[in-house]
């Protein structure tokens, strides 16, 4: 009985709550981006209105698409994003499936929505979508290396891949001064991977709106578009929660709901710094510039961070 409770009801509850929270965060992100651009901006509930409007539109399925991939890719994208919320601890609440999956699984789960979008783009049977999908593939090939080095570094000092354990042993306290610089560099690396993971400007070449007419999503309408929109919002919230759980798990020491609000505030600050500010300040990069950016400077910085942590460990011992 307890496993049924854990496997069926708790995931459904957390998924619905996570959906609502992610859409609110997306609305806050749009409003703050508008304020940065000296505009007023849409109201905070605008993403809910977008989804409700998409419920009234009809869903057109293009005739030369691969039907089963085209229809199932949005569902897989949304379910992949929702599963992420079940493995990441949120403030005082432990992850419901936290004992059944570790950091490596979470990093692989982050690739599922992107891969589903790539599959959906290739299956759309439209040359614009093919271009968008190949750009997303190249981008994924580029930013996965820094993320892997991040996982290796955080798990190395804590000797376990379990996110709950990494959160409780605060990673800043396990290293000396050289290692602190290394972990700071890793934080910079993961904050620069965030816009590419979430396909936001300056790394939104796959979904370039005016350049390739909407990129990956060009032939999607109505229901499938709404599912991709939701999966994008949930992935932003999940990635920011992961950064907070790994790097800033500090607790305030108040009531449970106070702790949760403190966690949401930290997630909001991480999202504003890594996604919103960069989004309004930069222009879109070309895909070979993106691949060069992640393979040359960012990979070197994360290698340097790993080397600093290694030197720190050797010196201490």
């Amino acid at each position: 009985m307890e496993t049924i409770m854990q496997i069926v009801f708790v995931p459904i509850g957390i998924a619905s709550l996570g959906l609502i929270l992610s859409l609110i965060f997306k609305g806050i992100d749009r409003r703050i981006a508008a304020r940065f651009q000296a505009r007023v901006g849409p109201p905070l509930v605008q993403p809910f209105r977008d989804i409700m409007k998409l419920m009234l539109k009809e869903t057109i399925v293009p005739e030369n698409c691969v039907r089963w991939v085209y229809e199932s890719a949005p569902i897989i994208a949304l379910v992949g994003s929702l599963m992420l919320l079940l493995y990441i601890p949120m403030g005082p609440f432990n992850a419901p499936l936290g004992n059944f999956g570790d950091l490596i699984l979470v990093l692989y789960l982050f690739t599922i929505p992107s891969l589903a979008m790539v599959a959906g783009g290739f299956a759309s049977g439209n040359p614009y979508a093919t271009i968008g999908a190949q750009r997303e593939m190249v981008m994924m090939m580029s930013y996965e290396l820094p993320l892997a080095m991040l996982a290796a570094a955080t798990a190395w000092k804590v000797t376990s891949f379990s996110i709950a354990k990494i959160s409780s042993t605060v990673i800043w306290s396990t290293v000396g001064p050289l290692g602190l610089v290394g972990i700071l560099l890793l934080l910079v690396v993961v904050l620069s991977v965030a816009p590419a993971e979430l396909v936001k400007i300056p790394f939104d070449a796959p979904e370039a709106e005016t350049e390739i007419a909407g990129g990956l999503l060009v032939d999607y309408s109505g229901r499938n578009l709404a599912l991709f929109y939701l999966s994008d919002a949930v992935k932003s919230f999940a990635f920011a929660s992961l950064i907070v759980a790994l790097f800033f798990p500090f607790k305030l020491g108040t009531t449970i709901w106070g702790e949760f609000l403190w966690f949401l505030l930290k997630v909001l600050i991480v999202m504003i710094v890594s996604v919103t500010t960069v989004r309004v300040a930069a222009a879109r990069l070309q895909i070979d510039n993106i691949a060069g950016y992640y393979w040359k400077p960012i990979a070197l910085v994360s290698l340097a961070a790993l080397a600093l942590i290694a030197i720190d460990t050797a010196v201490v011992i």
Binding site: P11, I75, V79, F100, G101, S160, F161, L227
Partner: peptide
């Protein structure tokens, strides 16, 4: 230092995708 239960993952995935569908 790592662990993973594939059965739990697959069953939750199938249940959630059925509901979303």
């Amino acid at each position: 230092s790592g662990y993973w239960y594939p059965l739990v993952f697959v069953s939750v995935f199938l249940i959630l995708s059925f509901i979303v569908y």
